[in-house]
């Protein structure tokens, strides 16, 4: 159940990323909705599930692109894992920290993509990569976090509640 719902959320994010978000570009930059979902679920569910969400979302993106399959999965998986370690230290219903975490998480994801990509022949110029893409993307994505965080938080709580009820009925 959790797997299906989170998978569906990721799938919708990827599709919106490819179809709707290009229309919301500011100076050629669109937000990274998938990173936002990864950051949120990493904070809710810890490092292993954070990594799993990151890898799944990244793989969906990679599949659509066709080049460097697994690169987004690696970068988002690592970010999901690292942010997941903060699970117990972050109050999930706080507002500021998720925004800051979204900025840091997306920035880390973009930088990892640039660095790891370079090892596999992405050959993207470093400074334009950081200042024209990574930083603006992180900023734009973080700004959107308040719009989505409460919804994702509510969804996560509902999922946990449903699974508790199912367990209670079964045992």
């Amino acid at each position: 159940m959790h797997l299906v719902v989170i998978g569906l959320v990721l799938f919708i994010s990827v599709i919106l990323q490819a179809t709707v978000l290009p229309h919301l570009q500011i100076f050629g930059i669109k937000p990274d909705l998938v990173s936002l979902v990864v950051v949120a679920f990493a904070l809710f569910r810890g490092r292993y599930q954070g990594a799993a969400v990151g890898i799944s979302g990244g793989l969906m993106i990679d599949f659509l692109r066709g080049d460097f399959l697994g690169l987004s999965a690696l970068s988002k998986g690592i970010v999901g894992f690292l942010l997941g370690t903060m699970e117990e230290r972050v109050f999930n219903d706080d507002f500021i920290i998720p925004v800051v975490t979204a900025f840091a998480g997306t920035l880390a994801d973009q930088l990892l993509f640039l660095i790891l990509g370079d090892a596999f022949g992405l050959d993207y110029p470093v400074w334009p990569g950081i200042f024209a893409i990574a930083l603006p993307t992180a900023l734009y994505t973080a700004m959107l976090m308040p719009l989505f965080y409460n919804r994702l938080y509510g969804l996560n709580r509902r999922l946990i509640k449903v699974s508790w009820e199912v367990r209670r009925k079964l045992f």
Binding site: L69, L71, L74
Partner: peptide, 24 residues
């Protein structure tokens, strides 16, 4: 294992491929 698999995948698909895999 997961990191190894992903790195292998990136290494294989970062080259100029004549055609994408059937799954893609």
């Amino acid at each position: 294992v997961v990191i190894f698999l992903l790195i292998s995948l990136v290494a294989v698909t970062s080259r100029d491929r004549p055609q994408a895999t059937w799954i893609e």
